[in-house]
Computed example of a mutant assay.
Amino acid sequence: MDINGAIALVTGGGSGLGAATARRLAGQGARVAVMDRSADAASAVAANIGGLALAADVTDSDAVGAAFTEVAEKLGAAPRILVSCAGIGTASRILPRDGALTIDLFERTVRVNLIGTFILLNHAARAMATLEPVDADGARGVIINTASVAYQDGQIGQAAYAASKGGVAALTLPAARELARFGIRVMTIAPGLFETAMSAGLPPEARTALEAGLPFPSRMGRPDEYAMLVQQIVENPLLNGEVIRIDSAVRLAPK
């Protein structure tokens, strides 16, 4: 699908992977709506790229629906590209030393990372299905979700996070198969260790230890490298129903 002139919606677009994706898509000529829980963060990125800022929580279906309506009203049509980068990283053992239950954390993590992704996919599919095809294949849109290498390599303390991202990965193929008749592709990216606000706070020795475990290149990924893969997925019509790891060939150790 041609990015130039297309309308794109990027969630978690106020920082990190989402912000890099919004900038790259805008640089390729897309009209980008930047959605984030933080109105200030969304506005800052949108102002930088000439995009539309949207403040919404991905777990709130009504708010997400209102965001899609606003995109159509202000940009002229529903988005043909959805990139879901919104999510939370959590760490907690199933049985911590104090013996406390961790059910609430598990539920919250799944609610944001998995159910939030599905809410976006649901609204996007409904909106994209009303659009006219853009090519001879009948393409109407592309939905790109974000999992994590933790869905396969979950470490101790990542039960909630790995399960939520595993759900996103497992959603990919059945969603792609169902939406194929509408000309809507569904893909998932599973990032490894990337430069984010979370990793920026690591002590130098911790960062060095993490990077030593990355085969090649032995460094954390840059957000624009994630965004580059988003661009390639959008532009390559045969990429559908698959999870792509982007991780320097790392396989996470148990802890």
Rank of each mutant, 00 (worst) to 15 (best):
L95R: 13
P96R: 12
P96W: 12
R97L: 13
D98S: 03
D98Q: 05
D98M: 05
G99T: 13
L101I: 11
T102C: 02
I103F: 06
I103A: 03
D104N: 05
F106I: 11
E107K: 11
E107T: 14
E107V: 12
R108E: 14
R108H: 09
T109F: 05
V110T: 04
V110Y: 04
V110N: 01
V112I: 15
N113W: 08
N113S: 03
L114H: 08
I115D: 01
I115L: 11
I115T: 13
I115A: 02
G116L: 09
F118Q: 09
F118D: 10
F118K: 02
F118R: 06
I119Y: 03
L120C: 15
L121W: 13
N122W: 10
N122Q: 15
H123K: 12
A125C: 04
A127T: 14
A127S: 14
M128N: 11
A129R: 15
T130S: 11
L131N: 11
E132N: 08
E132M: 00
E132A: 07
E132K: 06
P133V: 08
P133F: 05
D135W: 13
D135L: 02
A136V: 13
D137I: 02
D137P: 00
D137W: 01
D137C: 00
A139P: 01
A139M: 10
R140I: 14
G141M: 06
V142A: 01
V142N: 07
V142T: 15
I143G: 00
I143D: 05
I143W: 12
N145S: 14
A147E: 04
S148F: 05
A150F: 04
Y151V: 04
G154R: 04
G157R: 07
G157T: 13
G157I: 14
G157C: 10
A159K: 02
A159H: 07
A160R: 05
A160K: 03
Y161L: 07
Y161M: 07
A162M: 08
A163M: 08
S164V: 08
S164C: 03
S164W: 09
K165A: 00
G167H: 09
A169D: 06
L171V: 08
T172H: 03
L173A: 13
L173K: 15
L173S: 03
P174V: 14
P174M: 11
P174I: 13
A176K: 03
A176E: 11
E178C: 00
L179R: 03
L179N: 07
L179V: 09
A180W: 10
A180F: 01
R181C: 06
F182V: 07
I184N: 05
R185P: 06
R185M: 06
R185T: 11
V186M: 09
M187V: 15
T188M: 09
T188V: 14
T188E: 08
I189T: 08
A190E: 04
G192F: 10
G192T: 13
